[in-house]
């Protein structure tokens, strides 16, 4: 096991190098000269040179790359181009709100989806099954934007059940008041595709031979589903959840933007709108690292729940 972890950590290195190169390529080479972007309408060549020197983009590429590497190692990406806040501070403060919405979102939507999927798989090919499946398909086809807009308008604006947007300073207030509508919208949006996916996992397991053996032993249907099938279907479900994690952090950006939640996703959008490269570079690198770590943890978790897997 230890050998496996060591080997995987070792494999991080080439991937990390690739990510650094990719980010550098994108932002420093393709992104071109940001000086014009930031100088605005002022086209005084002196001022532009000044900005360039400040940003360090007047140096040759290799030097810039080295600076970038040092930044990653030290965790200090300098200051945001637009707000002049320290990038590391920005990210540190934005992480909390993001998680306050994401963790409940993930937990609730996974549990709900699993329960719904198991129910649907059990009554497969019945009217209920087909109706729910078609409902999911239609639900999936409506853009998340529409869900957000409509729920904000109807539930918050018209009915006044929740605040339309905003964020407070107190943790419990944030959790119980401001997060509720965003979490509801998030759960609704992710429910449809998750139910479909998990249903297919359950169906696949239910047709395996060991289910027939369990029935031949005279075990009750409840036990067959809840103990035998669930335990096997949990494997791809857990894998799926783990894979989605890193993407969720950023993917909630729409929710954060609409509900004015000061999270990482919203920060990313703002950075894109303002061409704030340091923030984008930092987020990309950190999320890439997080993804690799999450993948490793997912593989170890996989080994813990599926005894057949041999980590070599």
């Amino acid at each position: 096991m230890l050998a496996y972890v060591v080997r995987r950590l070792w494999q991080f290195v080439p991937t990390m190098i690739g990510v650094v190169l990719l980010v550098f390529f994108l932002f420093s080479w393709v992104g071109g000269d940001p000086a014009y972007l930031l100088a605005g309408k002022v086209s005084n060549p002196e001022q532009i040179e000044n900005i360039r020197r400040q940003l360090g983009v007047d140096q040759p590429y290799t030097a810039q790359l080295w600076i970038f590497v040092k930044q990653i190692a030290s965790g200090d990406f300098g200051a945001s181009w637009s707000t002049n806040e320290k990038v590391s501070e920005i990210l540190a403060t934005r992480l909390g709100p993001s998680l306050t919405v994401l963790v409940p979102l993930l937990v609730i939507s996974t549990i709900l989806a699993m329960a719904a999927a198991m129910l649907v798989a059990y009554v497969r090919a019945s009217i209920t099954d087909r109706a729910i499946m078609i409902g999911c398909t239609v639900g999936q086809s409506i853009s998340i934007l529409v869900y957000i807009i409509v729920s904000q308008y109807v539930l918050a604006y018209q009915f006044g059940w929740f605040p339309v947007q905003g964020w407070g300073n107190d943790f419990s207030e944030n959790l119980l008041r401001y997060s509720v509508l965003p979490v509801i919208v998030g759960v609704i949006v992710s429910l449809a595709p998750d139910v479909r996916l998990y249903r297919s996992f359950f169906l696949e397991e239910m047709h395996q031979d060991y289910v027939r053996t369990a029935r031949a032993k005279g075990l009750s249907e409840t036990r067959v589903m809840w103990v035998h099938v669930l335990r096997n279907a949990a494997i791809p479900i857990v894998t799926n959840v783990m894979i989605q994690l890193p993407g969720l952090l950023v993917g909630a950006f729409l929710i954060e933007r609409f509900f004015s939640i000061p999270g990482i996703g919203r920060e990313v959008i703002l950075a894109v709108e303002r061409s704030d490269f340091p923030v984008l570079k930092a987020v990309t690198v950190y999320v890439a690292i997080a993804t690799m770590i999450v993948n490793l943890v997912a593989d170890l978790l996989y080994k813990a729940i599926d005894p057949r897997v041999e980590l070599e």
């Binding site: 395996q208 031979d209 060991y210 053996t213 031949a216 075990l219 335990r231 057949r308």
Partner: peptide, 24 residues
């Protein structure tokens, strides 16, 4: 019928590898 399985009549299948639950 369920009460009968295992206690009155029981069955052994062809492919033991797939007939046993792999995670238990």
């Amino acid at each position: 019928l369920r009460a009968l399985r295992g206690t009155g009549i029981s069955m052994v299948f062809q492919e033991p590898m797939s007939s046993l639950n792999p995670v238990f």
